[in-house]
Amino acid sequence: MTEQIDYYLEDYLRMDRLPHIWCAGCGLGIILKSYVQALYELEYDLDKIVTVSGIGCAGRASGYVNTDAFHTTHGRALPFATGISTSNTDIKPVVISGDGDLFAIGGNHLIHAARRNINMLVICSNNFNYGMTGAQYGPTTPRDMRTPTSPYGNIENPFNLVSLVSSAGATMVSRWTVFHVNQLKNSIKKGLTKNGFSFIEVLSPCTTGYGRLNKMSPIDMMRDLRDTCKIRKVHPTEATIEPGKEVIIGDFVDIEKPTYADVLDQLTRRSTE
């Protein structure tokens, strides 16, 4: 007998597609939940949102939201969203994608979208690896981590995402975790209403990939986020993530600047004068 699913966010989700594909305890479900809860609490007009994602486990998020949604190619969610945002300024693109998608293959687009101050919200699931392809190391993997493609330990230095995005010119930059779920949701609400390029890094357990490699259960990983992350106000360059050390979370940037659509409109005035 199939259970009658009666869920209070059913208008916000594609209920016919649940259960989703993510593993037990994967943080992506919590990120998606925070996003739809934020839309629900804001009573946001769902016809004015396009949820865009790249490829990866995180990239599947766009397929579960009851908004217009586009699952694009690996790394390119931001230029797609730029095309949307500049074509129809009534629409807020919300990009949900992974650390690999946004900072490895798509890193160039990210800094340029931030530099242009395209009006969009980017929610980056940082699970410290390429989850979908089997937990290989990526641009956020800490030094010395053993992964299937770094069997002797990772020899590369990870990016500090909030520092990178801040210096590229984003108008809102925050870092939360899926354990800090109410702060995360409030941050998403802020990003949804902000006019400008907003970026939220969400530390999120990849339970089957990163978790297994580290011999941690999903609950261990969540406890770890609870115990090592501290909300503090620091300069983004200081908010590095290193194993065994305190991880700083919170809001790093919140400024106002004209958006790309604003300056395009100014350009039209200038060119016809």
Binding site: Y7, Y8, L18, C26, G29, K33, V178
Partner: peptide
């Protein structure tokens, strides 16, 4: 909020 699978409602 924490249930990753939309499996708890009120």
């Amino acid at each position: 909020m924490l249930c990753p699978d939309f499996a708890i409602t009120m």
